[in-house]
């Protein structure tokens, strides 16, 4: 296994799939000549040429719709949003077209495509550029939502998403792009819909995805020092959700904290804790707690931004409360 960055892992997955399947192409703002605003598509223009790696004007609604049409016509588009904040302009094509196409056409048309890009908060980019939208898309029947938390998952999940026959919302994280990890060389696929246990423990289950998985692991280290042995479960695919793995973990630990960077109201934590309540109620020794971003637009000032985001210490505190150790 080679040690590479999260962004290189994404790049490998796209190259792997483009070499394998000539229907796959990459389109988005600055993906070709600039090698990607965050350098995820580094070298891909040179490798695959301008027919398959395509720079667009700043027209998110337009090129997303183009992707939908191309997918319906049998191609396999990978549409990059520089960040998911800009995908809001394309919401009509994602929600009203891509998500519904197969159902609405009685199965005549597939819409096999990937919308991908950076989600969540980067550093100090303020309200309009620091938002977690996974709960929006996960709420839409017809969309799969995938969020890798480390380089190996980034590669395996993106490759699986490109091969998938449904529309996949693939949300990366800008702050994770430079993270380094071991990634299998050659063809590597992680099936969608499978959670991963990132740390085995017995006392409490921490469920976290994307950047928050790293936070949960740090919190678990801190909790270990305090005598609490936490298990960290990363769903990896938000929808379909691997409920079985989460419930099995809670059956073992009897306690859970769900962590997400996004807003609390109607967030992913609300869904996961409801599922635990519905199907794992008898296993619980305490109510499930949620650690989330504060319900405000992201402020710019360093101290306010810090306060708005979930922190490792909040996760530790919530876990202690749930374990009756506060």
């Amino acid at each position: 296994m080679a040690k590479i960055t999260y962004r290189e892992a994404l790049n490998q997955a796209m190259c792997q799939e483009m070499e394998r399947d000539d229907r796959v192409f990459l389109m988005g703002e600055e993906v070709a000549e600039y090698n990607g605003a965050y350098k995820v598509s580094q070298g891909m223009l040179d490798k695959f040429g301008p027919k398959r790696v395509i720079d667009t004007p700043i027209t998110e609604l337009g090129f997303s719709g183009l992707g939908v049409g191309a997918a319906m016509a049998g191609l396999r588009p990978v549409i990059e949003f520089m960040t998911w904040n800009f995908a809001i302009l394309a919401a009509d094509q994602i929600v009203n077209a891509a998500a519904k196409m197969k159902y609405m056409t009685g199965g005549q048309y597939d819409c096999p495509m990937v919308f991908r890009g950076a989600g969540g908060a980067a550093a100090r980019v303020s309200s309009q550029h620091s938002q977690a939208f996974e709960n929006w898309y996960a709420n839409i029947p017809g969309l799969k939502v995938v969020m890798p938390s480390n380089p190996a998952d980034a590669k395996g999940l993106l490759a699986a998403s490109i091969r998938d026959n449904d529309t996949v919302i693939f949300i990366e994280n800008e702050i994770n792009y430079g993270d380094i990890g071991e990634v299998p060389e050659g063809e590597y696929i992680i099936p969608l819909g499978k959670a991963d246990i990132k740390r085995v423990g017995t006392d409490i289950t921490l469920v976290a995805h994307s950047r928050m998985t790293g936070y949960a692991l740090m919190a678990a280290d801190e909790l270990a020092k305090q005598g609490i042995d936490a298990e960290v479960v990363d769903p990896r695919t938000i929808r379909p959700l691997d409920e079985a793995t989460i419930l099995a973990s809670v059956a073992k630990t009897n306690r859970a904290v769900v962590i997400e960077e996004g807003w609390r109201f109607a967030g992913i934590g609300a869904e996961i804790s409801a599922r635990i309540m519905e199907k794992g109620f008898d296993d619980l020794d305490a109510p499930v707690a949620r650690v989330t971003g504060k319900d405000v637009p992201m402020p710019y000032a360093a101290n306010l931004e810090n306060y708005a985001l979930p922190s490792v210490s909040e996760i530790v505190e919530a876990a202690r409360v749930v374990c009756n150790r506060a």
Partner: peptide
């Protein structure tokens, strides 16, 4: 990102 910023430090350069 200071309190006396034109939007109280909430927006930064872009806002």
């Amino acid at each position: 990102g200071r309190a006396g910023g034109i939007v109280g430090g909430k927006g930064g350069s872009m806002h």
